[in-house]
């Protein structure tokens, strides 16, 4: 579930509020920060993290239970923004996950089968 909104990193763009398919966030307009208003609705889909241009969000892999997270430790371990980098959505990433994926499409199998 979503466990961290970094007030330090957040630029207040509201992309996470819009991207979340289950409407977990509310925008605190005064503080210009998204608030985790409905944690119980989080489906651990990592969508907000993928969209966050400031690497300010962290979704813990535990979908059922709360996980304690520490922003400094996560940042030090390179975890903030890691999913976005992985799928190639960050600026400056050399490749996308789709490009690195070497799983052959079924055409490849069909072609191989035809030649055999």
């Amino acid at each position: 579930m979503i466990e961290l909104v970094s007030a330090e990193r957040c630029i207040g763009c509201k992309l996470c509020v819009k991207a979340c398919p289950t409407n977990v966030f509310d925008m605190d307009e005064a503080a210009k920060l998204p608030v985790i208003a409905r944690l119980e609705d989080c489906q651990t889909c990592f969508m907000c993290e993928a969209y966050c241009p400031a690497d300010a969000l962290y979704v813990a892999p535990q979908a059922e239970a709360r996980a304690e997270v520490d922003e400094i430790a996560l940042a030090a371990a390179g975890m903030l923004g890691s999913w976005r980098r992985e799928i190639g959505w960050s600026k400056g990433t050399d490749s996308t996950m789709a490009e690195r994926d070497t799983t052959p499409f079924f055409e490849t199998f069909t072609e191989r089968y035809r030649q055999a």
């Binding site: 651990t44 990592f46 813990a60 892999p61 535990q62 979908a63 975890m79 999913w83 992985e86």
Partner: peptide, 8 residues
Amino acid sequence: MPLERAGI
């Protein structure tokens, strides 16, 4: 990815 992130 969730498994990797959980260190599994």
